[in-house]
């Protein structure tokens, strides 16, 4: 099931979009009518997809909101907005959206715009999670080690890069496995990194 967050300050429009999504896709939705609501909802839902209006609370805060959330969460974005000037579209492009839909929008346009993105989300599984932040689950050093593991470095190579002893690195790897509830073997960690590598910043 794909999790979708709709950020739209006109609630009637948001309800319309919600209805369309629910009838066309196997998804769960949530509506946020302001940036503040969006931030809270983001942490609760960890959505795969964000449908976002650019015009929130009388300003162009949609783009800022997306840029801000991108630092902490992995998700796809579709902007749905009535703005069609070149400069605003360019600004929005900087936030790397999956699509850009221009209002007024009807059921078919919405379906087509969202369909492509949802199929991509279902195929690659690189969205719908928060990035690993330092000092939450892992320490700085552990995150750095995870990055190096993602780069396919051996324990020996990691030790040389970080100017630490091989045994220290081993200890760190054990700690990471414990935190991730993995069985203490090399392959388990490698597998985890292969699956979740994109969430390591």
């Amino acid at each position: 099931m794909v999790r979708i967050l709709i950020v739209e300050d006109e609630i009637i429009i948001a309800r319309f979009i919600e209805r369309q999504l629910q009838s066309n896709f196997n998804c769960s939705t949530r509506i946020a009518v302001s940036s503040a609501e969006a931030r809270t909802a983001m942490a609760d839902v960890l959505p795969h997809l964000l449908l976002c209006d650019i015009h929130l609370e009388d300003e162009l805060s949609g783009i800022h909101l997306v840029s801000e959330l991108r630092r902490r969460y992995a998700f796809e974005v579709i902007f749905i907005t009535s703005y069609q000037t070149r400069t605003i579209i360019e600004q929005a492009a900087a936030a790397n959206p999956a699509n850009y839909l221009i209002k007024p929008i009807d059921e078919m346009q919405l379906f087509a715009g969202v369909q492509l993105v949802i199929s991509r989300i279902q195929s690659n599984g690189q969205t719908g999670k928060a990035f690993l932040q330092p000092n939450t689950l892992f320490s700085d050093t552990e995150l750095r080690i995870l990055q190096l593991i993602r780069e396919k470095k051996t324990t020996q190579e990691i030790a040389e890069t970080l100017h630490l002893s091989r045994y220290t690195i081993k200890n760190h790897r054990h700690a990471i496995c414990r935190k991730l509830d993995l069985r203490d073997e090399n392959n388990a960690l490698l597998k985890w990194v292969a699956e979740n590598g994109v969430f390591i910043k």
Partner: peptide, 11 residues
């Protein structure tokens, strides 16, 4: 529900 939604929109 519409009234509730709109009230929510006005915070």
């Amino acid at each position: 529900p519409l009234i509730k939604d709109l009230t929510r929109q006005m915070n």
